[in-house]
Design a protein around this nucleic acid. Structure first.
Ligand code: FES
Ligand code: FES
Lengths: 159, 159
DNA sequence: GATAAGGGGACCGCAACGGTCCTGTTTCGT
DNA sequence: ACGAAACAGGACCGTTGCGGTCCCCTTATC
């Protein structure tokens, strides 16, 4: 399905949330605001922090803040941070994983495809996905609607 | 990793192989020619046949043949056939799978991303991946050979 | 009628992913 | 100085989907 991991989706939600309100926010706070379970939020933030997309401050009154503004973060960065480098096949550009590269007819064959996708993903920033206008009309109580396990959604950037 | 299934990779190899030699070829023949195990080739061909990308002829002296020439088959079709419709997230355009669509702030957020990828994938045909002649002259970076034990490769369109 | 080939499944092992939890370590507030 | 708050980092499983194989049936040629 060419689908990306659910964590990536969460990461987008979390990042967008970080773009609102206080500059520095804690993971429990974000979890409460977004409706995403707290451990998962923490995990996502750790990964994002390791990738340098967010900065962390430890200790009491600590939290996370954005390093770059939302409009300077292409989703390609998020995907790369969570799902690893963008590579459709095992044999990526360098092809460091294959043995007989000189003989394999598929060598580098997927590269243009990878490039195209990478370009497409680099052209869209989080700001584009955040809220391009006043269309965001359902604050707060949206989270209350998900008493059950919230299957795949739970993507609420509640205010 | 945004990776696509191995089957898709096989499918490309098989399709390219179908573009060579005899117009109609049997799956054992293709398996022998490509080095891909026969059952897998058969599986791939069944899927491709169901998707209408190849035509099959049953009975003795049967086999498969291409419906469209290679340059008329964008890889998007292959991916769609094997991995299913191209959709990065669970909530696709229509969002038929989600319950509280009206409240979810991510509704349709990924759509532009999907479109971009779809467009990128539609712009490259199998012919582009087959063997565009001697044009594939990778510069100096021939990459150091990694003596591996053929992890995922075996993608040989042997002649 | 025998044989060669595709059609459509069922089946199982494995690896990756999602999700949770626990045990440090750091910093701020009192 | 002490304790609480919050991040860091990993360990830990259940589940899922995928890759791969096999079997039996139908179809068409010889
Ligand atoms: S998660 Fe499905 S519409 Fe939001
Ligand atoms: S499969 Fe790796 S270079 Fe061909």
């Amino acid at each position: 399905m060419l689908r990306l991991s659910k964590l990536t989706d969460y990461a987008v939600v979390v990042m967008v949330r970080l773009g609102r309100g206080e500059a520095v926010q804690t993971s429990p706070c974000i979890a409460a605001a977004t409706g995403v379970p707290e451990p998962t939020v923490a995990k996502v933030l750790k990964i994002l922090s390791a990738a340098g997309l967010v900065a962390s401050h430890r200790g009491a009154r600590g939290g996370y803040r954005l390093v770059r503004p939302l409009d300077a973060v292409p989703i390609a960065d998020i995907i790369a941070a969570i799902d690893g480098p963008i590579a459709l096949t095992a044999c990526v550009d360098g092809g460091t994983s294959c043995e007989a590269q000189g003989l394999c007819p598929m060598r580098g064959r997927w590269d243009p495809v990878n490039r195209a996708i990478e370009a497409a993903l680099a052209g869209i920033t989080l700001a584009d996905m955040a809220d391009p206008g006043p269309t965001f009309a359902a604050p707060g109580e949206a989270a209350a609607l998900g008493p059950r396990a919230l299957p795949l959604s739970a993507l609420h950037v509640a205010e």
